Simulated assay, not measured.
Amino acid sequence: MLEGSTMISHLPTPRRLTAASICALALLSAAPIRAEPAVEVHLTYANGAFQPSEVRAPANKPVVFRVKNLDAKAMEFESTSLRVEKVVPSKAEGIVNVRPLQPGRYQFYDDFNQKARGVLTVQ
């Protein structure tokens, strides 16, 4: 092989090795990110109403609504303040994931039946 061959220029320089080592160590030493366990809230929708109509959850934790629709027609779990909507078919269960929330009251309703309302109180 000739002196000054291009093969030698493809070898990593000490500077590149140092930068790569620092990046690798930073990634390895970073603490693993743990997802906060969600709080489950169980609701039943029957005869055009939520049961219970008021539920509670702790602040700063994700919330999972498990909505069981016992009615003969579909319903839509919706909330402007929670920024969610989910159609739940008749005789089925829907799961609605909600981000961690600050303390407060968050209303929800059936978009197909505006009279069916409920509230989530976060403390």
Rank of each mutant, 00 (worst) to 15 (best):
residue 86 K to N: 07
residue 37 P to Y: 07
residue 97 N to Y: 15
residue 119 V to N: 09
residue 65 F to V: 09
residue 97 N to F: 14
residue 23 C to L: 12
residue 115 K to R: 07
residue 55 V to M: 07
residue 31 A to W: 09
residue 113 N to L: 03
residue 19 A to G: 04
residue 88 V to Q: 05
residue 22 I to P: 13
residue 112 F to N: 05
residue 84 V to P: 04
residue 29 S to C: 12
residue 62 P to M: 01
residue 31 A to I: 10
residue 57 A to Y: 08
residue 25 L to A: 14
residue 67 V to H: 04
residue 20 A to Q: 09
residue 19 A to I: 15
residue 10 H to G: 05
residue 108 F to W: 02
residue 104 G to S: 08
residue 15 R to V: 08
residue 86 K to M: 10
residue 93 E to D: 07
residue 21 S to Y: 14
residue 116 A to Q: 00
residue 10 H to L: 11
residue 13 T to G: 02
residue 107 Q to G: 08
residue 85 E to V: 01
residue 15 R to T: 04
residue 27 L to S: 08
residue 96 V to N: 02
residue 6 T to L: 11
residue 15 R to Y: 07
residue 2 L to D: 13
residue 55 V to W: 09
residue 94 G to T: 07
residue 119 V to M: 06
residue 103 P to S: 09
residue 8 I to R: 09
residue 88 V to E: 12
residue 21 S to F: 15
residue 7 M to C: 01
residue 32 P to E: 03
residue 60 N to Q: 03
residue 95 I to V: 05
residue 6 T to V: 05
residue 88 V to C: 13
residue 86 K to E: 11
residue 44 T to K: 13
residue 100 P to W: 11
residue 5 S to F: 12
residue 96 V to H: 00
residue 42 H to E: 12
residue 100 P to R: 07
residue 19 A to H: 09
residue 83 R to Q: 15
residue 121 T to S: 06
residue 26 A to F: 13
residue 112 F to K: 06
residue 11 L to F: 15
residue 28 L to A: 15
residue 107 Q to D: 09
residue 32 P to C: 15
residue 63 V to N: 03
residue 9 S to F: 03
residue 99 R to N: 11
residue 82 L to G: 02
residue 80 T to C: 01
residue 72 A to W: 00
residue 64 V to G: 01
residue 37 P to N: 11
residue 113 N to M: 03
residue 13 T to F: 12
residue 30 A to V: 14
residue 93 E to K: 05
residue 59 A to H: 10
residue 6 T to A: 12
